[in-house]
């Protein structure tokens, strides 16, 4: 594998967006790009990542390769990232290490890190981001992040309801409750403020606040978040990157005993 990002901070943002959710991950590299999937330690949140060749300045992968890493180690190396540096990832045919090369052309500086790979046994699950859902919502990632931060302070359970009035986010804590209603809107001057809802059924689902606080860490990857909900199946919270690919978080709703 030889894959070069023209801006090393892109890879840093991608890794930082889920390093607090999962501790280790297998990157599956092939000619169609880098894909990865991991479940958090409590087995509740599934992270699914896609970095297609369009995200790279140059991308070459001669044969499918699995690159297993500890995210805490990788994240330490990526502290060197800067927007003025490129980052090239190299993996040999019989991989036992990942090489990261940062290059700053203006500063005539290069930095090289090598990281030992780890053997991770994990089943790949069939996830389909085109999955059928009762409700799809596209909205501002900044708005979603703020609502999650504000409301989850009040309760460890966060409810999403979608009906004819729009989308309602609510919490009902022991000492306080809160509710935010958003209606669809189109802002031609600032499309990142658009909110669209398509629904075949109304939904009313509750999620653990803790996982939503992890999910919003990926909001640096995109202006928009795409939400997909169906009764009794995992919801998908997805941030799509400008140059293609993105990161999706599958989270199963809580249910009453």
């Amino acid at each position: 594998l030889e894959a070069k990002f023209d801006d090393s901070t892109i890879f840093k943002k991608i890794i930082d967006s889920f390093k607090d959710s999962v501790s280790q991950i297998n990157f599956m590299c092939s000619e169609s790009g880098i894909e990865a999937q991991a479940i958090d330690d409590s087995r509740v949140l599934l992270v699914s990542l896609s970095i297609p060749p369009s995200c790279f300045e140059t991308y070459r992968c001669d044969r499918p390769t699995t690159v297993g890493v500890y995210l805490s180690s990788l994240s330490k190396l990526l502290k060197s990232a800067s927007s003025s540096a490129t980052l090239t990832l190299y993996v040999e045919d019989q991989p036992d290490e990942l090489l990261l090369l940062f290059e700053e052309s203006k500063a005539s500086k290069s930095m090289e890190y090598k990281m030992k790979l780890v053997d991770i046994t994990a089943d790949m699950l069939e996830v389909d981001s085109d999955m059928k859902s009762d409700v799809s919502v596209e909205m501002s990632g900044v708005e979603f992040t703020k609502i999650v931060r504000d409301l989850t302070q009040l309760s460890d359970s966060f409810t999403v309801s979608v009906g004819k009035d729009g989308i309602v986010f609510s919490v009902d804590g022991e000492t306080a409750s809160g509710k935010v209603l958003l209606q669809p809107k189109e802002d031609l001057a600032n499309p990142e403020n658009n909110l669209s809802i398509s629904m075949t059924k109304t939904i009313d689902l509750s999620f653990a606040s803790k996982y939503l606080l992890d999910i919003i860490k990926a909001s640096t990857l995109s202006n928009m978040i795409s939400l997909k909900f169906s009764e009794e199946t995992p919801a998908l919270f997805e941030f799509k990157m400008e140059k293609g690919g993105g990161i999706g978080f599958y989270l199963a709703p809580k249910y009453d005993e």
Binding site: L46, D123, M124, L125, E126, A252, K254, D256
Partner: peptide
């Protein structure tokens, strides 16, 4: 009280 189901049973293995 609410229960939090784990995620894997919702997906098939590849």
């Amino acid at each position: 009280a609410q229960n939090q189901p784990v995620i894997s049973p919702f997906f098939k293995k590849k």
